[in-house]
């Protein structure tokens, strides 16, 4: 299963936030209303891993950090799993699976449906991340996976649409997502333009 021996260590490191969240939840640290802290924290970790995913190709250019390009899929999938956890926290902890609550939110609230849209994109990317599908899709794979840029924009909208009176978290997360996003977009479009010129 493990093609590289450091992989289990990386796996455990990526799981640490999850372990902490679950430990806090079951030890009643978030009592009496675990929805708010759990959703906020799982959302933050999801944004951090999305930022990491976007930063990968930038960081991999640094010679010493080249090794991280091996973990592209791993980090991308971790971002997906944390966003799934965030969604699950909403469904269980926040809405208690109440259909009234969920349907009202999903169909009427812009911040919920941009969040759901970001999740659905990431779901598609996660499902198309196996080696077999990468081979099958060939060049198209890259185009499909550029939809992460759109998902990141949805994540930023999702953040700002729900700021109440304290924008601190939204500001920090926007910065860590938007900086690599802008660099990537620049690279992508510059490359395309160069190709056309040649």
């Amino acid at each position: 299963m493990w093609d590289r021996k450091e992989k289990p260590i990386v796996f455990v490191i990526f799981c640490l936030p999850l372990i902490w969240l679950l430990y806090s939840l079951f030890s009643a640290r978030y009592f009496p209303d675990p929805a708010e802290p759990f959703m906020t924290l799982s959302g933050i970790w999801s944004a951090i891993f999305i930022s990491l995913t976007l930063s990968l190709s930038i960081l991999a250019k640094i010679p010493k950090l080249k090794v991280i390009s091996r973990y592209r899929r791993f980090i991308g999938l971790t971002a997906f799993w944390y966003s799934a956890l965030h969604l699950l926290a909403y469904l269980v902890l926040h809405a208690g699976f109440s259909w009234v609550w969920i349907s009202e939110d999903v169909f009427k609230r812009p911040y919920i449906y941009v969040g759901v849209a970001a999740f659905l994109i990431m779901l598609v990317l996660a499902l198309t991340s196996s080696k077999r599908i990468i081979k099958k899709l060939g060049k198209k794979w890259k185009t499909v996976h550029r939809f992460l840029y759109l998902a990141s924009l949805f994540v930023i909208a999702h953040l700002w649409w729900q700021v109440k009176s304290n924008p601190e978290i939204a500001i920090w997360l926007t910065l860590i997502v938007i900086i690599p996003l802008v660099i990537r977009l620049k690279e992508t479009f510059l490359n395309k333009m160069k190709k056309r010129l040649h």
């Binding site: 929805a35 809405a95 009427k108």
Partner: peptide
């Protein structure tokens, strides 16, 4: 009358359970 960002039709009565809120 909903809040622009969420429904006011239901509420979570605190305290609920560890996993499931008392909606």
């Amino acid at each position: 009358v909903d809040h622009p960002r969420w429904t006011q039709k239901q509420e979570r009565r605190l305290p609920g359970g560890i996993l499931f809120p008392n909606v």
